[in-house]
Amino acid sequence: MENLVRPVIVIGGSVLLTLVIGWATDRVLCKADERDHDSPLWALLRRGRVPYQLVLCAALLRGSYDQAKLLERHQPGIGRTLTLVLIGSAAWLVIRIAAAIVETSYSRYARAHRDPARVRRVRTQVELIMRVVSAIVIVVAIAAMLLAFPAMRAAGASLLASAGILGIVAGVAAQSTLSNMFAGLQIAFGDMVRIGDTVVVDGEWGTVEEITLTFLTVRTWDERRITMPVSYFTSKPFENWSRGTPQMTGTVFWHLDHTAPVEAMREKLRDILRESPAWDGRAYGLVMTDSTPNTVQVRALMTAKDADDIWTVRVAVREQMIAWLAAEHPYALPRVNTSEAVPRPSDPVSGRVPRPR
């Protein structure tokens, strides 16, 4: 009877104590979250409930399993299994706690600073720091798990003796991976490109969606994802439209007939921009920039607060100006010189009608 009661008491007591402590800790975190609504720390810490309870249960069972007198022949194997679970759950818990602290620090920084560029830079650094911390914790946990096996400890001397050769071989084999990792750190702390930046790479326009230690993902305007090694951004030129301030200046070009009413187009451009909510009101202009024997080139200039708005303004100006010219000034549209030209209206001052071409 004792052989049955003792294991039940030891195992059941460990599980029950784990549940009680876990519930009490969760209630404390809930109360702290209710008192401090501005900080996301307590809510983020609650995400570590599962690894926290695994650590408690594994530690209690590891310390009291010898008293259970259950499956004595397999006690070394069971004890080693509990040790592995304890190490793995502890590493999981450390990663969750580190993520909660880092995310809380970033949230406070984002609330205190209104500059979107600085916030995106810090966000990029925070994510890469978390990836580095997670990688270090995982490597340490795996090493600790391997040391739990006596055979691995015995092989430690031979592994250390060959570490130099293995290091050289691994360095040569992983040269590209290591270069990408260093490039990722350079991007994060060199402020070259950040999450949320609008970039143009290989002729593709998009937004930086994810930056890791080895690759970078750009989401294009048509929702495609371009994955590129981070070393690309440290070895080749690229356009970063969000560098500095996000404000941008855009242009629209038209090829028109020599009789195009440039002054009337300036007034129409002003009216179009005033009706466009994407225009930030900083500047606009319209000038004739070039001429050929058949056409003239007219350029409109406008400003907006970011890359998305400048695209909206440009397409609106291009579309509405062409529609207005077709409806009000069809003679201004380019045409083949041998075709019959639409006569220009009479000059309101002289009353003369220009001779057809």
Rank of each mutant, 00 (worst) to 15 (best):
L71E: 07
L60E: 02
L45S: 01
A43W: 11
Q67T: 08
L128D: 02
L44Y: 13
E127S: 11
G88E: 07
R49Q: 13
S89E: 03
S158D: 13
L60V: 05
Q125M: 15
Q53P: 01
I87W: 01
A43V: 07
R62C: 11
V139P: 00
D115A: 08
A117Q: 15
A91Q: 07
V94T: 14
A141E: 05
A154N: 11
G63S: 10
A43R: 15
I142Y: 14
L128C: 06
V140G: 07
Y65E: 04
S158I: 00
R114L: 12
L71V: 05
T81I: 08
P40Y: 03
R131T: 12
V50F: 13
L93Y: 04
P150K: 00
A59W: 06
L56K: 00
V55N: 00
A112Y: 09
L86I: 03
T81C: 12
Y65T: 01
Q75D: 08
T81A: 15
Y52T: 08
D36N: 11
I87M: 05
L86E: 15
L41V: 06
T124R: 10
L61M: 08
R108F: 11
S158T: 03
V126Q: 12
Q75P: 02
A98H: 02
Q125V: 08
L128R: 03
D115N: 15
G88V: 04
P116N: 09
R153K: 09
M152V: 07
R123G: 12
R80N: 08
T124Y: 07
H37Y: 04
L61P: 06
A155G: 15
T83I: 00
E127Y: 06
V140H: 06
L86C: 04
I129P: 04
L54C: 14
R80L: 08
Y109L: 14
V140I: 13
D115S: 08
Q75H: 07
L147S: 11
L45N: 00
L146Y: 13
A143I: 07
S107K: 10
A141L: 05
I87C: 02
E103M: 06
R108S: 09
R111L: 08
A135M: 11
S107R: 14
S158G: 08
A154C: 01
L41F: 10
P40T: 03
T81H: 05
L61S: 05
S134Y: 02
G88L: 13
Y52V: 02
S89H: 00
L71G: 12
R96G: 02
S158F: 01
E127I: 01
T81F: 14
L82F: 02
L60S: 06
Y106L: 13
L41Y: 09
A90N: 05
A154V: 01
K69N: 13
L45M: 13
L86T: 02
A148S: 15
G48D: 00
I101S: 06
A99N: 12
P116S: 07
V140C: 12
A59F: 09
S107A: 15
G48P: 04
L70C: 02
A100E: 09
R121T: 07
C57I: 02
V139S: 10
A59T: 14
S134D: 11
I87F: 03
D66Q: 10
V132C: 14
R62M: 14
R47G: 15
M130S: 13
M152T: 07
I87E: 01
V119G: 04
I95V: 12
L45D: 00
V119W: 00
H113L: 04
A99Q: 12
L60R: 02
D115E: 12
R114T: 15
A143T: 09
L60H: 04
F149K: 06
L71A: 14
L70M: 05
